[in-house]
C-alpha cells in the first residue's frame, strides 16, 4: 500500500515537472491561436510570432544593444552609487548615536515617498539629462539599503565588538571590518530588495523622457502603434530584471562566505 502511495507521489512529481516545462509554450500557443482566430484585434493584441519578428528586427537594427546598454548603465550606476551611500551612512547612523540623531529623522521622512513621485521635480532640476535618471535610481536604492544597514549594524553581536575592542582594533577597522561584516547578512537582504526597486525607478526615469533605453523604446513603439515591439520590450525588461535578481541571489549566497 505504501509502495503504491509512493509511486503515485513519484508520478505526480514527474507530471508537475512536465507541466512546468510546458507552461510557457502552452500559454504562447494559446495566445497565438486566439490572436489568429480573429476574435481579437491583432493590432492591439498581436500574436507571439509578430512579437518575435519585432524583437528580431529590434536586435538586427542594432538599437536593441544601444537600448540595453543605456538602461543597464542607469540601473547599474544608480544601484552602485545608492548602495554604497546607503551602506556607508547606515554604518555611521547605526554605530554613532549623534549621527543617527542628525540623519535618521530626515531619512525616515523621505524614505516612504515613492521615488516615482520625484519625477516632476527631477525634470525641473535636471531636465532630461542622464543625471536626473541616475538620481531617481539612486534615490530609490539608497533608502532601502540605508535602513537595512542601519538595522543590521544594531544587530551586530555586541560580544564581537567587545572582543575586537579588547584586541586593540582601531576604529576604522572596527567599522569597515567588524561592523560591516557583522551586519552583512542584513545588508545583502536590503541590497536584493534594492535590485527590484532600481528597475521600478528605471521605468519612471525613462518614461519621464529619454533618448535611448528599453522603456524609452516601449514608449516610442506605443506612439507608433507598434504593439509587437511594445510587448517585445516588456519581455526584454522582464527577462533583464529576472536575470539581475537571480544573479544577485546567487552572489548574495556567496557574500556571507562563512555560513
Amino acid at each position: 500500500m505504501s509502495i503504491g502511495r509512493r509511486s503515485i507521489a513519484t508520478a505526480t512529481a514527474r507530471l508537475s515537472v512536465l507541466v512546468a516545462a510546458l507552461s510557457v509554450p502552452a500559454f504562447t500557443g494559446v495566445w497565438e491561436l486566439v490572436a489568429r482566430s480573429g476574435i481579437v484585434n491583432t493590432v492591439l493584441f498581436p500574436p507571439p510570432s509578430t512579437v518575435a519578428v519585432a524583437v528580431l528586427e529590434w536586435i538586427r537594427s542594432g538599437q536593441f544593444f544601444a537600448d540595453l546598454m543605456a538602461s543597464l548603465a542607469r540601473v547599474a550606476g544608480g544601484f552602485a552609487i545608492g548602495a554604497a551611500g546607503g551602506i556607508v551612512l547606515g554604518i555611521l547612523t547605526g554605530r554613532f548615536r549623534l549621527v543617527s540623531s542628525l540623519l535618521s529623522p530626515l531619512f525616515h521622512i523621505l524614505r516612504p515617498i515613492p521615488p516615482i513621485a520625484f519625477v516632476p521635480i527631477v525634470i525641473l532640476w535636471f531636465g532630461l539629462s542622464e543625471t536626473g535618471k541616475l538620481f531617481l535610481v539612486v534615490w530609490g536604492v539608497f533608502f532601502t539599503v540605508w535602513l537595512a544597514t542601519h538595522i543590521g549594524v544594531q544587530k551586530v553581536d555586541r560580544g564581537l565588538i567587545r572582543a575586537a575592542q579588547m584586541l586593540g582594533t582601531p576604529q576604522p577597522q572596527m567599522l569597515w571590518e567588524i561592523v560591516l561584516l557583522g551586519a552583512l547578512p542584513y545588508i545583502t537582504v536590503g541590497l536584493r530588495t534594492a535590485v527590484s526597486i532600481s528597475f521600478y525607478t528605471l521605468v519612471a526615469a525613462e518614461l519621464a523622457g529619454a533618448f535611448a533605453g528599453i522603456v524609452y523604446r516601449i514608449e516610442i513603439a506605443q506612439q507608433n502603434m507598434q504593439t509587437g515591439q511594445v510587448m517585445g520590450g516588456l519581455a526584454a525588461l522582464g527577462l533583464l530584471s529576472f536575470v539581475a535578481d537571480r544573479s544577485f541571489a546567487i552572489l548574495a549566497e556567496r557574500t556571507v562566505w562563512w555560513r
Partner: peptide, 17 residues
C-alpha cells in the same frame, strides 16, 4: 579597553568570517 589586557568571555565570540 587596553591591548595589554586580554579578555576571554563566557561565549567564544570568535569572528565568524
Amino acid at each position: 579597553p587596553r591591548s595589554e589586557i586580554g579578555m576571554v568571555f563566557q561565549q567564544p565570540h570568535l569572528f565568524p568570517w
